[in-house]
């Protein structure tokens, strides 16, 4: 179910003396099955943008099409939209309210008016998708660890079986392992279900490893929209808007500037390691050749 944004603007406090243009003429196409990173610093408009995608906020001007239908048209089923475009807010564990984990995950599907059997099935599948063990299902969500609570909250959205899953800063406040576990889990469920995933973050390091497209927001506009390595090439421009490329990118650039013959397109540790290894392999080969020539 592709989402298309056509010149969407959103102005906060339009009738006040200080209107704020949170989104400025944003046009985007989010086709099925992509893994997208939406990057921007606080106040860049990224959180406002994602709330438009499931109809929680209304565009001041412009139009949004879900599966070809204008979501603002009369008779458009907005409740259906919220189920199809699942949005997981920042610190989603703060929305948990039920006495046990399983009932909390059931909240979404229950609101969709499904049968008891279907609700239970979906909740179970969703909890499995986020990798929570059965032992926790009937515990109070408030007794779980921070990372586990977050999984439960994500499952609460997944249980509605969305076609698009948007996660706003899913790793905020987690420790490094917790962060990696959540991101790996998201990557896995992306792979298993094939749904579109939009990862909202202000950290390039976090998303570089996972996504196949990066949208950079700044001052309510789309600054870049491209493959990660293309975006990271603009590291100076990124810095100018308070963002940065992954640290690896900087190391590789520095190496190139020092005259190393390595590609500066590496964005993950693994790529950088391979790049450097290959470079040294070439060095060694060249030395052997030289020595061979001298010996001869």
């Amino acid at each position: 179910m592709p989402i298309i944004l056509d010149k969407v603007s959103h102005i906060y406090g339009e009738d006040t003396t200080m209107p704020v243009r949170a989104l400025d003429n944003v046009s985007l196409v989010l086709p099925d099955g992509q893994f997208i990173g939406l990057i921007g610093h606080t106040g860049s408009g990224k959180s406002t943008l994602v709330q438009h995608l499931n109809g929680l906020m209304k565009a001041t001007s412009g139009a949004i099409y879900f599966n070809g239908e204008d979501i603002d048209s009369d008779g458009f089923d907005r409740k259906m939209l919220r189920a199809r475009v699942g949005l997981v807010f920042q610190y989603p564990e703060h929305q948990l309210f039920e006495t046990d984990v399983f009932s909390d995950v059931c909240f979404g599907p229950k609101n969709l008016g499904l049968s008891k059997k279907e609700i239970d099935l979906r909740a179970y599948e969703a909890l499995k998708l986020v990798g929570l063990e059965d032992d926790y299902f009937y515990q109070s969500p408030f007794d779980l660890s921070g990372g586990q609570k977050r999984r439960v909250a994500i499952a609460g959205v997944l249980a509605m079986k969305p076609d698009v899953l948007i996660l706003d800063e899913p790793t905020a406040g987690l420790d490094p392992r917790g962060r990696d576990e959540i991101l790996d889990q998201i990557a896995r469920l992306k792979q298993e279900t094939g749904i579109t995933v939009v990862l909202v973050s202000h950290s390039m390091d976090d998303v570089a490893k996972y996504v196949d497209r990066i949208i950079v927001m700044n001052k309510g506009r789309v600054l870049y929209d491209d493959e990660p390595k293309e975006v990271f090439k603009r590291y100076r421009e990124l810095e100018a808007v308070g963002l940065a490329a992954p640290q690896v990118t900087y190391i590789m650039k520095a190496l190139r500037e020092k005259g190393y013959d390595v590609s500066d397109e590496a964005t993950t540790i693994g790529e950088a390691r391979e790049e450097i290894k290959n470079y040294f392999a070439r060095l060694v080969a060249a030395r052997k050749e030289r020595q061979g020539a001298e010996d001869a």
Binding site: R82, G86, L87, H94, Q95, F107, G108, N111, G156, V157
Partner: peptide, 13 residues
């Protein structure tokens, strides 16, 4: 406001 939106996103009515 935030919690309300989060629950709306889970199709709360």
């Amino acid at each position: 406001d935030k919690i309300m939106k989060a629950q709306l996103a889970r199709c709360a009515d």
